[in-house]
Design a protein around this nucleic acid. Structure first.
Lengths: 202, 202
DNA sequence: GACCGTACAGTACAGTCGTACCATCAAAGC
DNA sequence: GCTTTGATGGTACGACTGTACTGTACGGTC
């Protein structure tokens, strides 16, 4: 039996365990993520999970934090990849990251939905998930729209604040509809394109 | 001690227990709804809950069904109340029902979110919640928009199918943002009005 | 008035939960 | 080489879970 080197990398071990937690949450639901199932999925003992996350609450918090950071990174990456494009395309590149197109993004959304539901009845979780950067997303959109307006791409009659809020809500709602199997991801993306056309062509 | 009359009204007793389940789900979360807590909340014994819902799964299903019917009734009522108004106002009356404005609607949304999250990892629940009337909502919207187009209230350049989908997604996303404390219900309603203005004034 | 089915209450059981505790084993410091 | 300490496994405990089983009081039927 191979043994861990003595002074373990705490960051790495915590990441290993959190990854196991998120895999279980995505496949079997957050309610199925117990100390024992997470430990088994990570290939360690329950004591090891306890060692790095003293209580289950801390483990759950770490899972949410990890998830939020991963989503944030993905969105930023999408925006940077289109840094040289026009504002409309940059807006699209940003918003389309919210639509679950592949299995990984569906898994990500599933975990997020579970935490979201939990936060609605758990004040501690709510604070962790909402105060942290929920309004930031809208600010990024607002800045992009303001750029478009200054560049003359967007009619000055539009309210950038309202448009930013509505675009974010639209993308969120479309993501919901895809997860609920109301339509495919391609259909949701087509609807997103349609809305951006209405916004920029008028 | 007062006793139940012998031949009990099954509909009524089931409704009593389901109501207790939904109260717990809204206040403490669906994970806190066990056979014992539901029984205690309903003021009956665990055996009584078992008697009317043989398994916990059946109880959960009944809870979702009850919730879906309640929401459906509320939306229909909002639409009927504005039956004599113009299409734009009817559209608004319909969509605004999705925004959680009072504590009861917040509770309703909390329960729905919990079931939604559960359904993402439970095929049986998913079938019950999605195949049943998720596309119907969009059809109602589409019909309203088609009416508006025929009446000349809405530009014929608009794609009623896309607009219906996007309006529903927008309302869903706005409801999300209100629940996440990103903004108040009034702000969400203002955004909804803004979008309808864009749709009908252009 | 005997009998049967309905509508409960109480309880027991096997399993899982989070967590606390103890043992161990390898590396580091002296 | 011995001791200390970081990292881990194993296990036990009390609480809680869903469900099965048993008992029993009442209403309706004959």
């Amino acid at each position: 039996m191979w043994r861990m080197p003595k002074l373990a990398d705490h960051e790495e071990r915590r990441a290993l365990i959190v990854a196991a937690l998120l895999r279980i949450a995505a496949s079997r639901g957050l309610h199925a993520a117990s100390m024992r199932t997470v430990a088994a999925e990570a290939g360690v003992s329950v004591s090891t999970v306890q060692y790095y996350f003293h209580t289950k609450e801390q483990l759950l918090f770490a899972g949410l934090q990890h998830q939020a950071e991963a989503v944030g990174r993905r969105i930023d990456a999408g925006l940077e990849a289109s840094a040289t494009a026009g504002v409309r395309d940059r807006l699209y590149a940003w918003l389309v990251q919210l639509i679950p197109v592949d299995e990984q993004q569906r898994a990500s959304y599933t975990v997020f939905a579970a935490y979201h539901a939990l936060a609605l009845t758990d004040p501690a979780l709510a604070e962790l998930s909402y105060t942290r950067g929920s309004g930031e997303l809208e600010n990024v959109l607002r800045a992009l729209l303001a750029d478009a307006q200054q560049a003359g791409e967007l009619s000055s009659a539009r309210d950038v604040g309202a448009e930013a809020g509505n675009l974010l809500a639209l993308a969120t709602g479309l993501a919901d509809s895809v997860m609920a199997n109301m339509r495919g991801a391609e259909a949701a993306i087509a609807l997103l394109h349609y809305q951006l056309d209405q916004l920029f062509d008028a």
